[in-house]
Amino acid sequence: MTAAPAIAQDSRPDRSLVQAYLHRRGEREFRSLYRRHGTALYRFAVLRVGVDAAEEVVQETWIRAARQLPEFRWGSSLRSWLTGITLNCCREALRRRKRERGLEIAPPVASPGAETRLDLARAVSKLPEGAREVLLLHDVEGFTHAEIGRLLGIEIGTAKSQLSRARAAVRRALDSTGEQRHG
């Protein structure tokens, strides 16, 4: 396996970088975009579909993004747009998994031994679909409610109430786990 080529960090804003990439479909510009946004997309995919499926999801995300970039109208940030594509890829991966295995729960992803984070990951994985996406997008990825509304096609108020319910459910799950552990 060859190591990815060393490329100096590109300080151009996303829009300029995307224009440069589309101008000649250049590898250098694409790698710069990948390195700028890849980590966040991968982390989101890991939390949504688990480590095993995350690489495939991220690869598919970039393929779709590269195809659809000429149509992107910059009505949102590039990160938000890419996350939307990742979200769709994750949903498809989960649907495939559900068909194949009959379950849709994303596996906990915290490192073994990291007790709190593992509890947290378990609690998040048990949330209903919509609430889980809102929680991950808001509390992990840092998107605003307006951005989440656009990404998920829901009202801002719905995003807020789902986040509130999700946090409450996580809190209850953590309290319950703590009581079992210490009781």
């Binding site: 396996m1 060859t2 190591a3 990815a4 590898e27 694409f30 790698r31 990948y34 390195r35 890849g38 980590t39 991968y42 982390r43 989101f44 890991v46 939390l47 480590v51 995350a54 690489e55 991220v58 690869q59 970039w62 393929i63 992803v109 915290a110 490192s111 990291a114 709190t116 984070r117 947290l120 990951a121 998040v124 929680l135 509390d139 992990v140 840092g142 996580v170």
Partner: peptide
């Protein structure tokens, strides 16, 4: 805070960039 850090221990796999390219 723990929630915000969730998943951060999973860095990008080294060979994923080349696979995507």
């Amino acid at each position: 805070q723990a929630l915000a850090a969730l998943g951060s221990e999973h860095g990008l796999p080294a060979d994923l960039e080349d696979n995507v390219v």
